[in-house]
Design a protein around this nucleic acid. Structure first.
Lengths: 161, 161
DNA sequence: TATGAATAATAATTCAAT
DNA sequence: ATTGAATTATTATTCATA
């Protein structure tokens, strides 16, 4: 009678993920407040259960603050999106040379991009070396290198939309 | 008057780390019991504070059970030991070719070794590429490659003792 | 500063209802 | 099966003491 929004379990858990992704949520009570702000009045009992089902856990952020974080397998879902973001902001060129694909980046950005490329686990990628301003993607054959370049260009293109 | 063992903070925290490393500790109360078994009677208040200082956190183990885990930087202390173990069990040869050091391994072992090599953060190592049965360590100069080979051989030698 | 006892805060569970 | 209210369990903090 009092709440404005009805919500089922699936939706609710998605909301919770979204909130955790974008806020530094330190307690379940805090999470409850944030949900309430969006019109969802949910008891702490339910939130506690959702937290467990989603395998959300408290971790230390880089700033040392302890807050709830999504488990890695959920975070990974957005790797492509992060990559698009990075590509659009930091990539200067993508070129092929033999079995290598060379990605030139703004200084300091290559390691992060290399790390994400690696985490994509593309089967064509035998290995990734990252320096300060470039990544070397090693493929087993030249045609695979061409394919990897193409896939990278696609992500790059999408990121710039 | 009642306890058998006196212990200072540093010792106590080391004990706690050791226990957490080797047991599936699910609560601080459980940890307290384990400490008591070893003759250390410590209040939960102190344990709670130690847990925080050590940045020990609850995480999910591979079996899905939630238990206390040491932070990564502490775990890393034993990287060299793990590497020695791996080296002694899985490495076939270590050779230099120009700016590359090539480590041949038993099939399937190169990725893990490469990952650990990378985590050593040796300043001579510009990058690591791992396939299925070999790692390519990229150095900036040939003399650095020689140095890296030497350091690897030392670890290998130690591991085989 | 380090600690324990008491307390407060936080989170998980039980139990009842749907 | 899902949920909330009440309860219990767990963890963090306060306050006093050394």
């Amino acid at each position: 009678m009092e709440g404005f929004c009805f919500i089922n379990k699936k939706e609710r858990q998605e909301k919770i993920c979204a909130i955790i992704r974008t806020n530094e949520v330190r307690t379940q009570k805090e999470l409850r407040e944030l949900l309430k702000n969006q019109g969802y009045d949910i008891t702490l009992a339910t939130i506690s259960r959702d937290i467990q089902e989603l395998k959300v856990r408290k971790e230390y952020s880089s700033n040392g603050v302890e807050s709830y974080h999504l488990p890695n397998n959920v975070t990974e879902k957005s790797t492509i999106q992060k990559l698009q973001q990075y590509f659009s902001e930091a990539i200067l060129s993508i070129e092929v040379s033999g079995v290598f694909v060379i990605i030139r980046t703004d200084p300091g950005n290559a390691k992060a991009i290399g790390y994400m490329m690696d985490s994509l686990e593309w089967k064509q990628l035998a290995g990734v070396i990252s320096g300060d301003d470039n990544c070397l993607l090693l493929c087993k054959t030249e045609s695979e290198a061409e394919k990897v370049k193409k896939k990278c260009l696609e992500i790059w293109g999408r990121g710039r939309n």
